[in-house]
Computed example of a mutant assay.
Amino acid sequence: MPIFTLPNALSAELEIRKSRFIGYAIPVADRDAAMDELRRLREAHPAATHVCWALLAGGQSGMSDDGEPSGTAGRPILEVLRHHDLDGVLAAVVRYYGGVKLGAGGLVRAYTDAIASALQDAPRVERIALAALKVEIGYADEARVRRWLEQQNYTLENSTYEMDVCLAIRMPVTALDGARDALRDLTQGRAAFPSDAGQER
């Protein structure tokens, strides 16, 4: 099943009983990048009462009510991300308290609506898992393999020259098996694959 992320950051603002809720949906690579974005949001809104958030990024999920009653902010925000089948996205809501208490149910609705508004009609792009493939080839095969790389639009991350030429190539995970077969064909079986690096997103 495809996984989707956002092509760019989105935001929306709601006013609910004198409180301002500003929802942000920001594409991020991982938890570290999400924490950097949260720091930036807090710097941009030093007077905000709360900055509540939820993150879906592969296995690096998380959420925070940031001082709101437990379960009234982070979880509702996370549920909206899940509903939209998004990954690699930080959703945050900046709240400026307006003096009127909303109660637990009102808070859940407010945080849900703030993120849902930011994501309304949001464009989505498929998030493709990438992996690195290492291949060892003879010097005589290098030009042929480099031409094939250009045709496939794969990224050559680095190359080392010793007894053989060792190339590290970045490509979608789904292309790995086909790439190994193609490289064996191109080199008449001489290509060797010492150890495939782990999958990344």
Rank of each mutant, 00 (worst) to 15 (best):
N158L: 08
Q60W: 06
L149K: 00
V135E: 02
A57Q: 09
V89N: 00
Y154D: 07
R144T: 14
L55V: 05
G59D: 15
L156T: 06
L14K: 13
D85K: 14
S159L: 13
R170Y: 08
S117V: 04
G71V: 09
A29V: 07
Q151Y: 03
A197Q: 08
T112F: 00
G99C: 02
R42Y: 01
D113R: 11
H45C: 03
Y139Q: 10
T187P: 08
Y97G: 03
I16F: 13
T112N: 14
A110S: 15
A116L: 10
V51F: 03
L133W: 09
S11A: 07
H83P: 04
D196N: 01
P172L: 05
M163W: 11
Q120C: 09
K134P: 02
G198W: 10
L102M: 12
A57I: 11
D196Y: 00
H83T: 07
K101I: 11
L102E: 09
L130H: 11
A116R: 14
L156V: 08
L130G: 02
D36R: 14
E162T: 04
E126A: 13
D141G: 00
E15V: 15
V100S: 15
M63K: 15
L102V: 14
V93R: 04
F193P: 02
Y154F: 15
Y111N: 10
L78A: 15
K18F: 09
D113Q: 11
Y111I: 10
R109Q: 12
A175S: 13
L78S: 06
A54V: 07
R180H: 04
G23F: 08
N8R: 15
L133I: 14
P27G: 15
L41N: 01
A122W: 03
A44F: 01
A129K: 07
V89D: 01
N8E: 15
R184P: 00
A48H: 04
A34W: 08
F21Q: 08
Y24I: 02
L55Q: 11
A122D: 01
G98K: 12
G23S: 13
H50D: 07
A140P: 01
P27M: 13
L14P: 01
D65T: 01
P194A: 11
R20N: 09
A179I: 12
Q120A: 15
D65E: 12
E150L: 06
T174N: 03
Q199S: 12
D164L: 14
R95P: 13
A91E: 05
I16L: 14
Q120Y: 08
L10S: 08
R75L: 04
I137G: 05
Y154I: 09
A92W: 03
A12R: 13
W53A: 04
F4H: 11
H83Y: 14
A54L: 03
G74F: 06
D185P: 00
V135Y: 09
H50T: 11
L14G: 01
D177F: 05
F193K: 00
P172I: 13
R147V: 05
Y161A: 13
R127W: 11
R124D: 06
A73G: 02
G99V: 07
T5N: 05
R180W: 01
L102A: 12
L6W: 09
Q151I: 12
A57P: 14
S19K: 05
I137C: 09
Y161S: 05
V173G: 00
G99Q: 09
T112D: 12
Q151W: 10
L41D: 01
R184I: 04
F193S: 00
L176K: 03
